[in-house]
Each structure stands twice: as C-alpha cells, then as structure tokens.
C-alpha cells in the first residue's frame, strides 16, 4: 500500500516536471553563456545535486573536479578547477549555463555538456558504442531536474 502511494506521488511529480521542463534545444541562452531561467520552473534540491555530482553513472563531476566540501568522496580528479567557492565566482544563471553546456562559457572546454543533445561527431547511445537509431536515442546526460539539483548544490559552495 505504501509503495503504491509512493509510486502515485512519483508519477504525479514526474508529470508536473515533464510539463514545465525546458527541452535542450529550447533553452533561452544569454549572450555570456548563462541561463537565467530554471529548466524546471522550480528550485533544485542540493542534497540530490550532491548525489548526481558524485555518482559515476550520473554527473560524475568529481571525475575531473575536486570538491573539498565533500571529504568523504574518494578519488576526486584533478583535471579541472576545484569547485569550492563556485557560488562566489558565478551567479546561479552562469552555473546553470556551465552545467548545461560549458562550451558556451569556456570555448573549447574539456567539460562535457550535461544537458545537450548535439550536434556531436559519431555520438553513441550512452556507453554502448552503438549509433542511435533515431535522434531521440541520444538522451542528455542529466535530466532538467538533475541539472537544477546540481545548480542548487553548487550555490551552497561559497566560502
């Protein structure tokens, strides 16, 4: 019974999110590569954002970035700038832009676009090494909600 209730609640929230969500190709970008409006129309959840950032199959931000505020997370990479203090350096809109498609802020960046569906050269369906059968098979790495959750976490990183 409890499970059914949870499922119903989940379905309802997904329905709401889906309705209000901005799809990758419909984002309103500002000149400087920032995105003023939330992709979901609601505020993200920083706790969820932390999970997305440290999970290999999700954002895996710690593959490249170290975050001293997460001392419990092992093997943080050293490819990219340490993220502590990110909220002091960037506005929320700028952080959203960096997470969605960092190349709009940093041309030629190594950082992958987390909410981007192309154009890409020889894109595969996730890590299957298989080409997409239809364009929709290339899904953004994170969902709109996950992007907002990550942005909400990044906004907690002030020093």
């Amino acid at each position: 019974m409890q499970n059914i209730l949870i499922l119903a609640a989940l379905a309802a929230s997904l329905g709401v999110a889906a309705m209000a969500e901005t799809v990758p190709n419909a984002i309103s970008w500002a000149e400087d590569g920032s995105i003023p409006e939330s992709l979901t129309g609601t505020a993200g959840n920083p706790d969820e954002g932390r999970v997305v950032m440290t999970t290999n199959a999700l954002g895996n931000c710690v593959a490249c970035h170290a975050i001293a505020a997460m001392p419990d997370v092992p093997f943080q990479g050293n490819i990219a700038p340490q993220l502590d203090g990110a909220a002091d350096r960037w506005t929320e809109a700028q952080l959203r832009g960096i997470v969605v498609d960092a190349k709009r802020t940093f041309p030629e960046s190594f950082m992958p676009g987390m909410y981007k569906v192309g154009p890409f050269i020889r894109p595969g369906v996730a890590y299957t090494a298989k080409p997409p059968e239809k364009p929709e098979d290339i899904r953004p790495i994170l969902s709109a909600r996950q992007v907002e959750d990550v942005v909400a976490y990044l906004m907690t990183l002030s020093e």
Binding site: K103, F110, P112, G113, K116, F120, I121, R122, P123, G124, I138, I141
Partner: peptide, 13 residues
C-alpha cells in the same frame, strides 16, 4: 584531435 561522442572528447584532451 577530433572530439568524438556525446562527451566531445579527443584523444588529445
């Protein structure tokens, strides 16, 4: 030097 895939990464990256 070509950036392949959804992650847009080249061997050189």
């Amino acid at each position: 030097y070509t950036r392949y895939g959804q992650l847009e990464m080249s061997c050189a990256n």
